[in-house]
Design a protein around this nucleic acid. Structure first.
Lengths: 243, 243
DNA sequence: GAGTGGTCTAGACCACGAA
DNA sequence: TCGTGGTCTAGACCACTCA
């Protein structure tokens, strides 16, 4: 058996096992719902413990790439693209995935104090906030209007940075070292207001997809509150969820 | 230390540890982002192995209830409701959570053969299909119109069962023993068609939240394809996602 | 340097499914 | 009956954080 696994390297063994299994699965595309070797066989074959194999399998299960059936075995979910469940992609990534060139135009970026917004962000009502309003474009056509509000202390000076080509998430992660943890979304169907309709080049009162998002840090603090209005013909919200 | 854990019972130890920790977290609501005892302490205190504690913690992390910081410790994400990430709740459950009494009226249930629908369900074009069209109500007011299409072989005779009080998911799970695995969703904002608008008691062309859903079995087969039209004032799509 | 979570090992017993 | 995944144990070493 080839020695594929690096035991001293920086990559955990179970990650290597996972990649090995992923390659194996996509190699066998022909066979439908093909069974993988048992956990014990894999452990022996790769020279690792069964616990390590199980950790690799657990992550593949979470991604929807395989499933287990107690008493029967582990099976690949083949013949389909299996995007990870419950993961959120940014506007930027979403556009790239669809083969559309994303860009942004900053309409406004200012600092303010607002009791209502402070309550939404769960900070004291006189906390300074940053508000960024952007027009999101796909292939240079308007796709969405987006207003982000953040506590100023989390990202001092963000309004002066380049927010037209860089993703806001990337900026928060790399420049401000914030560990973004989860998002809470509310998705609605609404009528476009006059101003929004004008920016999106649609008729006032025509339907828009309205998404409200709060992004949380690992410790539960709220990093940003975003309201987005999407042109329904240019953007649909897609998601894969576990049951 | 009290003997809280049943070792012979049907409930896995790590589940009991998880519930113990959950109770402990919600007990300490006052202390903010409070640190939990270390994994080794918990293991000793509860008389289980560290691996078992880690499995409990892993599930709490997935639910967003705690987070870990290597070298520092494990912390509760306190002072907030932390719904599980990436989980989908049924219409029935969603209404109950909001304190609204859900019900349904079956508008039509028939068997058909349709090449276009068969393609969506990824079955042969002359496969018999079942189509169920329902009006979903909350506190006896119309909330949504929903059309479900399923391969007839997966659920023979379903059209004759009670679909007004029982959830369709529950019926598929308990009566037909189908293991529902994941859903793929597309959420859009649309104008209401004439017939849909009438059923929902809204004006034609007013915005509706349109959700298209394909539910997959563990082996990748498609169990159902659902199109739903929601009244935007009575239903918003809520979700918590990992980043 | 002491304590933390992250990784890894070599065993063990159980319930379940298939032959 | 035999093999499967599910659960559980008692250890071990590592990189990291914090005092």
């Amino acid at each position: 058996m080839p020695q594929l696994l690096h035991r001293r390297g920086p990559i955990p063994l179970y990650t290597q096992v996972k990649e090995h299994l992923r390659a194996r699965i996509s190699g066998d595309e022909a066979s439908d719902a093909s069974r993988l070797p048992s956990e014990r066989e894999l452990a022996k074959e790769l020279g690792v413990s069964r616990v390590t194999v199980r950790q690799a399998l657990r992550e593949l299960i979470e991604e929807g790439a395989v499933f287990t059936a107690p008493g029967r075995g582990t099976f690949a979910v083949s013949a389909r693209l299996a995007p990870a469940t419950g993961r959120l992609t940014s506007f930027t990534q979403e556009m790239i995935d669809r083969g559309i060139a994303p860009s942004s135009r900053v309409l406004a970026a200012d600092e303010l104090v607002d009791a209502h917004l402070a309550e939404i962000l769960q900070v004291h009502e006189d906390t300074p906030l940053v508000r960024i309003r952007r027009l999101r474009l796909g292939d240079d056509e308007p796709v969405a209007v987006e207003t982000s509000v953040l506590p100023a202390e989390l990202c001092p000076g963000i309004a002066t940075l380049d927010l037209e080509t860089r993703s806001l998430y990337e900026t928060l992660r790399t420049i401000y070292r914030l560990r973004l943890h989860a998002s809470e979304l509310v998705v609605e169907s609404r009528q476009a207001e006059w101003g929004t309709a004008g920016l999106l080049h649609i008729a006032p009162d025509s339907p828009v997809l309205f998404i409200e998002r709060r992004t949380l840090l690992a410790d539960g603090r709220i990093a940003e509150f975003v309201r987005s209005w999407y042109r329904p013909d240019r953007y649909q919200f897609r998601m894969r969820l576990a049951l």
